[in-house]
Write a protein that binds this DNA or RNA. Structure first.
Lengths: 350, 350
DNA sequence: CTGAAAGCGCTTACAG
DNA sequence: CTGAAAGCGCTTACAG
């Protein structure tokens, strides 16, 4: 079934059918009804490729995930407390906004040509990119793409510098400063003076930002930073365990620790417990992300909750705006976060 | 950049460029190289819509998820121990096989026109449908689609009857009988004679199959089924709690229970614990799916592991076969499952 | 308000 | 082995 047959059956030309399909105003109600009736009757659906080739939008959005895990790991996305809820939210909200969502994972930075390809093939109207680490990666992507793009977890200032002045870009983050401040303030309020951190990869914007915010906030409370309490994680649980164990081996522990994400917080809790160090009695732990597991585990993890759903919504709305506008734009959004207090922290009596 | 320019730059016709792009044999190596050089130099990427319109494949596969949760729930997919790992695996494997993956959630069965639309618009070469419940739903989808489709968690015999004889369909399940048998046998071996079950929605193929397998296996062990021990769950944790609480209120408990998925098993464990009933000392619990949380929780949950990755791989391979063949086909695959023994069951001394 | 015609960027018989 | 031409199914100025 094609528009020509619809036209014939409705006694009009293909032009008019097209006008009806695209909801143009210059069609009398009667004609429109007649055409619509035939369309409905035959369950006619215009051929996407033909429409796109003739200049219409694809109504498809690309969602690209740079994974930090091995392809091997069966848990790479859904086990990731940052990616998983985002993907979900994006697919859901995108669908409800009428978009088709093309989801793509890229493992190797070298594979970023895939992203460019998706655009060059005109598969999508716009793209969302999550998980890039090095700005050169982003730069090489941005330099070749003139389509609307939303970047998540990137330094807005850096992107602004890198980006082509006629690009259409939005950068979306959650407010890491706010989150870390809330966590530090909470611990200080509980009486903690010796607070450590398990950092995430600092090649990541949030990894770096959380670390920096932590250091500054400690300072503003008049607390001194003990470098021995700064464990270098990479956002995975595995990296955390060995770091925690050498901390334990050092014989001296902080009274509280903030982890840059929940996976590391959970791994740290396990490691401490295994060594007879009780959470929260001997050490308080705060996580980041509010992963599913965090409320299941005992003690339930106090953590910073990121509003993934709202972020995805905002991202899609901004992307839509970029798609519909043909002027260069540079938008930035920083989502509010909040501390979820559960059971993994306690007051300290000195 | 379009093929015409490539042709001009390489000193050939568009036909030849097309032949090179499509890797047709009737092009001398020298010509091919010359064309390829220009293509690479300009990073040329053929326009997808034009190719599809001219009769080529889209190289895109649709992944449709019927969600049982409210749109509201931010955890709908990634919190689902069945959907989440499957989506991951599908996107990953699909990508690595060279396909683009279109992911779509449908909440309302009425929304199934979305699936049909995706096909009619020629957006995808084939589709994978997960989570349909009533066969009439599937029937209405199948009746309107002549493209290759993979169905997961459906009764093969029923589909065979429903399906158009010239359809290209594959049905993929995990072996529920095997899984439930393993669970029952394990419990019997531990000495249990009074075994209950928390069933999933029996409008679901696996929900029904697991229940039936359970009943039969009990019989074959010479055990009698106590209807009071058959709790009617719907695969969600929430439904489980009230069922478990009325079981507890009845004053009589089985010594072991098998849940049709981990979410219910976990919820049951929580509920029992809250009422002072210890797992596994007072009651043994077996789950199904092997969700992420199941190994984190204390006691760690003994459960049936479904090989999601292998299933997705098989599904995509079969789908590819269906896409490449133009003959009607009906394929069935049943994946092996295995019991993962952890800490939630114990021997019983009578 | 409406139709004929050109054009979107490919592929593929067809002819040579 | 290769090019000219038709065709895929739409949309959109253009002319009326």
């Amino acid at each position: 079934m094609k528009s020509e047959e619809i036209a014939r059956l409705a006694g009009v030309s293909r032009s008019t059918v097209s006008r009806v399909i695209n909801n143009y105003p210059n069609v009398p109600e009667k004609t429109r009804e007649r055409v619509m009736k035939v369309i409905r009757e035959y369950n006619y659906e215009p051929n996407l490729s033909a429409r796109v080739l003739a200049g219409k939008r694809t109504n498809t959005i690309g969602l690209f995930l740079y994974s930090i895990y091995d392809i091997q790991s069966p848990y790479r996305i859904y086990g990731n407390s940052y990616f998983a809820p985002l993907v979900d939210a994006f697919v859901d909200i995108g669908n409800s906004m009428g978009y088709y969502m093309l989801v793509h994972t890229v493992y190797n930075p070298d594979e970023s040509w895939r992203i460019r390809q998706t655009f060059s093939q005109k598969r999508i109207d716009g793209g969302i990119i999550i998980g890039t680490e090095k700005s050169q990666e982003i730069e090489s992507i941005l330099s070749k793409i003139s389509h609307p793009i939303v970047l998540m977890d990137c330094d807005p200032e850096e992107i602004r510098k890198i980006a082509n002045p006629k690009a259409r870009i939005a950068v979306i983050n959650s407010d890491d400063e706010q989150g870390i401040h809330a966590a530090v303030d909470y611990l200080v309020e509980l009486g903690h003076r010796e607070i450590g951190m398990i950092t995430g990869r600092t090649t990541t914007y949030s990894g770096l930002k959380r670390r920096e915010s932590f250091v500054k906030r400690l300072e503003s409370h008049g607390l001194t930073l003990d470098e021995r309490y700064m464990l270098k994680g990479d956002f995975t649980g595995r990296s955390t365990v060995s770091e925690v164990e050498s901390l334990i081996a050092s014989g001296k522990l902080p009274t509280a620790m903030i982890a840059s994400n929940d996976e590391m917080a959970l791994a740290a809790m396990e490691a401490f417990k295994r060594h007879g160090i009780r959470v929260p009695e001997d050490i308080s732990i705060v996580g980041y992300d509010d992963a599913l597991a965090s409320s299941i585990v005992k003690p339930a993890l106090t953590t910073v909750r990121i509003p993934f759903f709202d972020m995805a919504k905002k991202a899609l709305e901004m992307l839509e705006e970029l798609i519909e506008s043909d002027k260069p734009r540079f938008m930035v959004y920083n989502a509010d976060v909040g501390l979820v207090v559960r059971e993994s922290c306690t007051t300290i009596n000195t």
